[in-house]
Structures are given as C-alpha cells and as structure tokens.
C-alpha cells in the first residue's frame, strides 16, 4: 500500500486514479500501516480515490495529499482567512470569505469585547480571523481571538493597503516555512503582508507605488518557474522595471 503511494510522490494525478489497498497475506501479524489522506484523496472501501487533479505530496511519516491550483475556497476548521464584513445583524457580523456561504462572526469574538464594550467594526471592513466551525453541513463561523482570548494578530485591518486575490496554490506556497517568494520580496523593500488561506492577500508598503509593485509581482509569480522568478526579482531590484 505504502509503496504504491511512494512511487507516485511528486507525480501529477487525475480524478479517478485509485490506489488499491492490498495487504500482503504473509505479514498479517505485523502492525497494519496507517496513512492519513489529506485534501484531494478519499477512502472508498478498500481503495484510496483521487478526486482532484494535482501533484501528490507527502509529509513523513504517512501524510499524503493532492496539491492543486484552485481558486474557490472551501472552509476548513482552524485556517486563517481574510474576510470582508458584509452585514451587521444583531449580535453577529456576516463575513464574506469567498466560500459558498457567508461566515458568521460574533461581536464577542474580539479581544477585550464584552456585552457593553462592542468592537468597532463597520460594514466593508476587512477582518483577519480564524475558522472555528467549518463543515459541509453547517454555516462557517469565525473568531478573531485564539483559545486564550488573545487577538494574536487577528482582528480588523487598519486603513490603507491593497487587497487582491490569487490562487490557493500560490497562497500555500507563500505561507510555507522559509518560502522563497516571501524571502525574495522582503529583500526589495519593507512592506506588510497578510495572507489568508482563502486566496486573499493584503499588502501595504510605504508608498502606493511600492504596494502595487508587490501586488503585481505576487500575481505574476503564479505561473513562473523558480529561475524566471529570480530573473524578475533581480530586474526589479536593479530598478530596470
């Protein structure tokens, strides 16, 4: 079983591809191997079914998933997203996170908020928040505090900056530890960047021009190889663009 997966790591797979689980009869007394299926892989009886096109990735010891370039966000519990407040109704805010349904955000889910002391959130504001409920049968729910009641970087955005959308694949590449794109961009000039896993990226640099440069470079990174990207970054650093 594990071998059939290991052979395919880094390969492009299509929906409908299956990995059959065939337990070798001879070693029944050994401990059964366990694998964890991430996004794009589903268990279907005795086999594992691929249901998205993309690259098979592996994380030791036994985590497998399909890395695909999609645009539509599907909420997952615990992920941090950038939302746009679309409505205030009673004690909740409705927040657009780019999913099939609007998420709800309680006004008590902000740091230091109480029944008396309401947070200052207006319709149209951006919020960086975490999904605390996300499953297919329920409305997604957001919170701007962690389990200790601290903001921890979440909350309403300040004025200025630019919000734009990129593919979910690029967002995951940006958020990867020691991401080359982020490191290279940081060498050009200082700027603030907030990356939501729903494909929204917010950037604020010292001037509007620099903000636009960062935004355009991130958008163009989507379809570039590492070499092409390095050439582009060098040209920008030299000031030729």
């Amino acid at each position: 079983m594990l071998n059939s997966f290991k052979d395919k790591i880094g390969d492009v797979l299509l929906p409908g591809d299956v990995f059959s689980v065939q337990m070798p009869e001879s070693i029944t007394d050994s401990k059964p191997e366990k694998i964890v299926c991430g996004p794009g892989l589903r268990r279907n009886g005795d086999e594992v079914l691929v249901c998205k096109s993309g690259v098979l990735r592996h994380k030791p010891p036994n985590l497998y998933w399909i890395d695909s370039q999609q645009r539509r966000y599907i909420p997952v519990k615990g992920e941090s997203v950038i939302g746009i407040v679309t409505a205030k109704s009673g004690d909740i805010f409705k927040v657009d996170i780019g999913a099939s349904e609007q998420a709800s955000l309680s006004y008590l889910a902000f740091e230091g908020a109480t029944k008396r002391n309401r947070p200052n959130v207006q319709v149209g504001d951006l919020v960086y928040s975490q999904l605390i409920i996300a499953n297919k049968d329920m409305e997604p729910e957001l919170a701007c505090i962690d389990s200790c009641g601290r903001a921890n970087g979440m909350g309403v955005f300040g004025a200025g900056g630019l919000l734009f959308k990129v593919s979910l694949g690029l967002v995951r590449r940006l958020l990867a530890p020691q991401s080359e794109i982020t490191v290279d961009l940081g060498k050009l000039f200082p700027f603030e960047m907030v990356v939501g896993l729903n494909g929204r990226v917010w950037v604020k640099a010292r001037t509007a021009q620099q903000t636009l440069i960062v935004a355009n470079m991130l958008e163009s990174c989507e379809n570039m190889t590492a070499q092409q990207r390095q050439v582009l970054f060098r040209r920008v650093a030299d000031g030729s663009i």
């Binding site: 299509l14 929906p15 409908g16 589903r42 079914l49 249901c51 998205k52 096109s53 993309g54 695909s68 370039q69 999609q70 645009r71 539509r72």
Partner: peptide, 11 residues
C-alpha cells in the same frame, strides 16, 4: 471541472 478543482469520482 478539473481546473476548478471540483471533487470528481472519475473523468
């Protein structure tokens, strides 16, 4: 459908 990343059982 494949490009949109919708879950499919087969092509």
């Amino acid at each position: 459908l494949m490009d949109g990343g919708l879950p499919m059982g087969c092509l």
